[in-house]
Design a protein around this nucleic acid. Structure first.
Lengths: 173, 173
DNA sequence: GTAATAAATGTTATGTTATAACAATTGATA
DNA sequence: TATCAATTGTTATAACATAACATTTATTAC
């Protein structure tokens, strides 16, 4: 596992490894926001207040968040936002490749890569709940090959792997 | 894609390909039931009426079914079974490797293989809704390798691939 | 064979996740 | 500035899942 200094930029093809306990998370958050602004500018989409807030909440840490948790966090300031507010923001972020839904958890997480809608894989730690997102051409290719053998046209591969992250393996709870 | 005659027995390592339109589905159902009886006998588990019925409903065809659909089908005869009846049967079937949950659909499907809890992959046709279950060592191994590179201990890989099956590709709806 | 125990089922209630439908507002465009 | 499209607000409800406890059915020990 190669270390990543805070100033490194995750790019497609790279793995974004498990966050180390004391990494510069402000950097992650600001970086995510900047990426979102870039993407929206390029695609002529509007990163409105609600969308920006939800994205920022997703980046509170490297753990997936349920839609209703997001709602509660939004409403922590006294607002009375209703579920569609959150679900619409999430739909937008997912459509623009800025967030992902983790089916196995019914929860959402900010996208750690730029570009590429498909072909991501998620490694989910059962101990600490943190998630690492990778883009492994090997996994993607193995899936496409297996699909081809079935005569199946692959459109959206979903890979979610539960297990234990290196930090929790080294120092079990 | 190699053809499979109705009398072939799916075994781990084999792919169970997309069901052809006019295959001998009674064979699939009876086979699944027999496998279930075997597994339960070997594990000292009881394949009770409710569990057997749910399993049989799962094998109505090769499409995943939601828990509430199962419930409605159970209750089609006038019963007033409640959700826990279905969820408990599903839990049992999943624990014993006789059924799977498809996270991306919130739905359940009978297990098309024998043995092996983990390492299955599901190819889900967006056109007809049918699902093929495979056990590809290549996919599994690519996932484990990627995990190892992250220092991640893989426990339960989940692979669900959306796309279009050969039948629907050949004769689009 | 019967009592004691464990496993499974029945039932009610409730918790969690997600979307439909429509009104009101805001931003972009002509 | 009128028009249209996009976004947001709001209410209601649909869809998915489980907690908790009573009852019944199987198994086991005696």
């Amino acid at each position: 596992m190669k270390p990543v200094s805070p100033s490194d930029e995750p790019v497609p093809g790279d793995d974004v490894p498990f966050p180390r306990p004391h990494h510069d998370h402000d950097h992650c958050r600001h970086d995510a926001l900047r990426r979102a602004e870039d993407v929206c500018a390029r695609q002529g989409a509007r990163l409105t207040q609600a969308r920006r807030e939800v994205l920022d909440l997703l980046w509170a840490d490297h753990r997936p968040v349920s839609a209703y948790d997001l709602l509660h966090r939004l409403n922590a300031d006294g607002r009375k936002a209703a579920p569609p507010v959150v679900y619409r923001a999430l739909d937008f972020l997912i459509e623009h490749g800025l967030a992902h839904r983790l089916n196995s958890l019914n929860a959402f997480i900010g996208c750690a890569h730029i570009g590429g809608e498909h072909g991501a894989q998620f490694f989910i730690c059962r101990e600490c709940g943190q998630v690492a997102e990778t883009r492994s051409p090997e996994i993607d290719s193995a899936i496409r090959t297996a699909g081809a053998e079935l005569g199946f046209r692959v459109q959206a591969p979903v890979v979610e792997v539960e297990g234990v992250c290196p930090t929790c393996s080294g120092a079990p709870a």
